[in-house]
Amino acid sequence: MPNDAEGRYLSVAEAMKEWGPVAFDALVDIAKSYNAYITYKDLTDLVQDVTGITYGALVSNWSGNLLSYVLHRAVRESLPPLSSLCVSAEGTVGKGYAEVLQAYGKPVPSDLDTLNDEAAMHRLECYRFFGADLPPGGGVPTLTPKGAGCARVEESTVSRSGSTKVVSEAFRDPPHDWAMRRMRGLTMVSLRRSR
């Protein structure tokens, strides 16, 4: 069971009421930086750090619930799929991303590669919607460097399933590290203002 800062036990549902908005705000902030993303682990660490509510369960046992909160709020508010900005340590989305496509009324592909292509397109929608500084031409759907299977990240174009993905040299250092540090400060300020 999750524990608050005073060591009291909370239900997962009670904790999610605090974690969900923090995750949502973090992903909105990440969407403001072209090609930025965050891992499941980093997002769960962030929401625990910001709220002071910790949970000892495996990340894989509760990150889906956290992203489900983000998904349903984004759908309600007619926003692009912010959940696409959160990826595994391998830089990919999992089978659970099919829930995102279903929520937006899109067909669900049968393979993970196509699911990851869809997530890359959704990330680009997020960057455009939230005003990220895009390259000339408006950017392209981009797999994360690890998701693209790049051992050495360099400027390259990869064609698969008829679509083009660009992996930029700029992402030798995971962009989520910067976004996570920035979100910790921004989220603490916004939480203080909202209380």
Rank of each mutant, 00 (worst) to 15 (best):
V153S: 05
R76Y: 09
G94P: 04
F129W: 13
A98Q: 06
A148N: 09
E118M: 11
E125S: 05
F129N: 08
V108N: 03
V93S: 09
N116L: 13
W178T: 15
V158Q: 13
K165E: 10
K165I: 08
L134W: 07
G131C: 10
Y97L: 03
A151M: 00
W178R: 14
E99A: 14
S78K: 11
P136T: 06
E99C: 03
S159F: 02
V140G: 01
A120N: 04
A119S: 09
P107E: 08
V75P: 02
P175C: 07
E90L: 03
A179R: 15
M121F: 15
P109K: 05
Y97E: 07
M180C: 11
P175I: 12
M121D: 05
A103N: 03
T142R: 15
A120T: 10
P174H: 14
G147A: 01
D113K: 10
E99D: 14
F171V: 00
S159W: 08
G96R: 09
L143G: 02
T92R: 14
F129P: 02
D113L: 14
C86E: 10
V158F: 09
E99Y: 13
V108P: 04
Y104P: 09
C126Q: 11
P80I: 02
R160K: 14
G94H: 01
S78W: 06
G96A: 08
A74E: 04
A179M: 15
V93N: 05
T144K: 07
A119V: 13
V87D: 03
E125T: 07
A148H: 05
T114W: 15
H176K: 08
V167D: 09
L134C: 06
P136M: 01
G131T: 03
G147Y: 02
E90M: 02
P136Y: 10
G137T: 12
V93H: 00
V153P: 09
R73Y: 01
P81H: 01
Y127K: 12
A74I: 07
L115D: 04
G139N: 08
S78F: 04
V75L: 10
E118L: 11
S84Y: 08
H176S: 15
P175V: 14
V140M: 03
V93T: 10
A74Y: 10
G138F: 10
P107R: 13
E125V: 01
V153E: 04
A74L: 11
A151K: 05
S163I: 14
T114I: 11
F129Q: 13
Y127V: 10
P107V: 01
R152C: 13
A132N: 00
Y127A: 01
H122R: 02
V153Q: 01
Y97M: 04
V158E: 12
R181M: 14
D111E: 11
S168L: 11
E77S: 06
F129S: 11
T164I: 12
L82F: 07
P81D: 00
L124N: 00
